[in-house]
């Protein structure tokens, strides 16, 4: 069988599968009658507890109890973390400068060097070493949490109750508001910490700009104060923008995949899986990249208006 025939057979199979999916999916069922192949997807923004007792309590309270519990997103996040640690642990075992890098070590080295170059390009050579671990961990954590949800059957695992699907066992952590918020808080802490550590008390000068006003330039002074207030606000607004950008993108991606699978099962979802791979990468890069940019801005000495700029 020639390669051309193989491709032709594969193409025909995909078309047949698409047609089949269309007929048995929600659209086909609405057109031709019958019930859809998949049950109507339910979107739950809050994560769901993994254990039965916690789930029961949450169901009664109509919200998560105010205590620690293992949710499906936390479990997913832990799995993603373990995978990352495992990859780096096994990939960097017995490494030395004499041996030629190969296999997993080579792959990890490629990733580390790429991220290192990125940080160097943004923050400059002198700051790369101290910013790199935060940037790299943030990027890999967001990326792994986004991609882990694309593993086939990952989100199909769950618990049944009385014949219907009750809750998922695993759900990508990016779809849990708490995960992006935690990362945004960490980003905020590091930005302020490095800003203060590098510039000292003068770091706060960009928020409290009274120089021009004290020198009698009232109009300019008022504008400076206003700009300072905006700067201060933007530091906190970043928390929200960071959080909801990632949360929104990840949640929207999940809903998109759920809906495409519901409307036309099987083949139709494939392009969207590809799209979600790209979205996961871009979001990881944006989150880590913006943190890096904000840190770099924070450590850059600023000049007040009275200096003639």
């Amino acid at each position: 069988m020639s390669a051309k025939n193989v491709f032709r057979a594969l193409g025909l199979s995909l078309i047949a599968l698409f047609v089949f999916g269309f007929v048995i999916g929600a659209i086909g069922s609405a057109l031709f009658g019958g019930s859809p192949f998949l049950p109507t997807p339910e979107v739950h923004l809050p994560p769901q507890p993994v254990f039965e007792s916690d789930a029961h309590e949450a169901h009664e309270l109509h919200k998560l109890p105010s205590r620690f519990m293992l949710t499906n997103t936390i479990l997913s996040s832990l799995i993603a973390s373990v995978i990352l640690v495992g990859l780096f642990f096994f990939g960097t075992r017995n490494i030395n400068a004499d041996a030629r890098p190969k296999g997993l070590h080579n792959f990890l080295e490629f990733i580390v060097v790429s991220m290192y170059s990125f940080v160097e390009g943004v923050a400059g050579r002198g700051n790369t070493r101290r910013f790199f671990p935060l940037f790299a961990t943030m990027f890999l954590f967001v990326l792994m949490n986004a991609w882990i949800g694309l593993i086939p059957l990952y989100q199909s695992l769950g618990f049944m109750n009385d014949g219907h699907f009750e809750r998922h066992l695993l759900r990508p952590a990016g779809t849990d508001l708490n995960m992006p918020l935690a990362l945004a808080i960490i980003s905020f802490i590091f930005v302020e910490f490095w800003g203060i550590k590098t510039l000292g008390l003068s770091y706060f000068g960009k928020f409290f700009r009274f120089g021009a006003l004290l020198k009698g330039r009232i109009f300019e002074g008022l504008i400076d104060i206003f700009v300072g207030v905006l700067e201060l606000l933007s530091e906190f607004i970043r928390l929200i923008s960071f959080t909801f950008r990632l949360f929104g993108n990840m949640t929207a991606g999940e809903i998109l995949l759920l809906m495409t699978a519901f409307l036309v099962p099987f083949v139709f979802s494939l392009p969207f899986y590809g799209l979600e791979l790209l979205v996961g990468f871009i979001q990881a890069l944006i989150f880590a990249g913006l943190t890096l940019v904000f840190v770099t801005i924070a450590i850059t000495p600023h000049h007040d208006g009275e200096e003639g700029h």
Partner: peptide, 18 residues
């Protein structure tokens, strides 16, 4: 939206440890 203090702390600890 799913905001949950204990989960937030878990993620903070998770990320810091990672």
């Amino acid at each position: 939206l799913g905001f949950h203090w204990p989960s937030l702390v878990v993620y903070l600890v998770n990320f810091t440890a990672l």
